[in-house]
């Protein structure tokens, strides 16, 4: 017994280190903060409240970047405005002719970004709308430019978004021109990568990438970004397609939460099919 105590005293630093390392890995295996439920809502609310208190402090770097972006946007909008006037007339006529169903109008909840955690690559944002305003976990967020991210937690007055430029984000996407499908993932800075596109498929630089209707989490046909580079992945049958996000996350201040609730009928059908497949594969 004395020897054991002597051993523990002698190697207490290494024993403590091993214990803490094991505890850290155990915590990591538990998963992210969303599994802490109510505790998380308290943290989100408190941090959001503190960030909103200091949201009035201007960030000169972000302001300069926002000015440049707004000037470019203004120029683009002037051109787009003229085009869209003509397109609206054409569109209306064509819809009537083809009897296309009207697109579903999503309910949008306007929100201000009161805090951003883009430091050290933890790309989350806090908005000043919460469960009281109808914001729920799993709702997606957009701006006029395109897809921003998804709500991963909400308290009464605040919600936290996982931005598109987050390592955990996966979005089912398609090429607007060729309808080629793939999965959008973030790989650093403002660039995304469209994965799982075979080499034989037609995707070119300049193509617009939209959310796919395959996704139950994101509404379909929301702009994600534009293809800036197409190459071939080494030792792979797939292409490496680099996409520049449409949204400028550095200057993100206002956004809309899209009140989409995925169809319970669809979710139920997909769940039943999964179960049936699993039963068939079990001997």
């Amino acid at each position: 017994m004395r020897r054991l105590i002597e051993f523990v005293v002698r190697f207490k630093n290494y024993i403590t280190l091993s214990t803490l390392v094991v505890m850290s890995f155990a915590l990591m295996s538990v998963g992210n903060l969303s599994q802490l439920g109510g505790f998380r809502a308290v943290i989100v609310g408190s941090i959001g409240w503190m960030q909103s208190l200091f949201a009035w402090i201007p960030n000169p770097v972000a302001l300069k970047s926002e000015n440049v972006a707004l000037r470019e946007l203004n120029l683009q909008l002037a051109v787009e405005s003229a085009r869209s006037r003509q397109s609206m007339v054409e569109n209306s006529t064509l819809r009537k002719m083809l009897e296309l169903p009207q697109y579903t109008d999503y309910t949008l909840i306007a929100a201000d970004v009161v805090g951003k955690t883009t430091t050290q690559l933890r790309n989350y944002a806090t908005i000043n709308k919460g469960t009281k305003d109808g914001v729920r976990e799993g709702m997606s967020c957009i701006t006029d430019a395109g897809l921003v991210g998804i709500v991963i937690g909400a308290s009464q007055h605040y919600a936290v978004l996982q931005l598109l430029i987050n390592r955990d984000t996966r979005v089912s996407a398609k090429d607007q021109r060729t309808r080629v499908d793939g999965i959008i993932q973030w790989e650093g800075e403002n660039f995304l990568v469209l994965k799982d596109v075979p080499r034989a498929y037609d995707v070119q630089a300049g193509d617009l990438i939209l959310t796919s209707s395959y996704s139950a989490r994101y509404p379909a046909n929301i702009v994600i970004g534009r293809v800036v580079d197409v190459g071939d992945e080494s030792n792979s049958l797939f292409r490496r397609i680099v996409v520049e996000a449409a949204v400028n996350f550095a200057t993100l201040e206002q956004l809309f939460v899209v009140d989409t609730r995925s169809s319970s009928e669809r979710a139920e059908l997909e769940r039943l099919t999964d179960e049936r497949q699993r039963q068939r594969s079990t001997p």
């Binding site: 630093n13 403590t16 280190l17 803490l20 390392v21 505890m23 850290s24 890995f25 155990a26 915590l27 990591m28 538990v30 998963g31 992210n32 903060l33 943290i43 989100v44 941090i47 955690t117 050290q120 933890r122 989350y124 991963i152 937690g153 936290v160």
Partner: peptide, 25 residues
């Protein structure tokens, strides 16, 4: 120092909405 590092890391994981344990380790 180790214990302080673990607790500081855990605290930071909680307030920054990061994966619990990454900063702690």
């Amino acid at each position: 120092g180790m214990v302080a590092g673990f607790l500081c890391g855990l605290l930071f994981d909680v307030v920054s909405a990061d994966v619990l344990g990454a900063n702690a380790l």
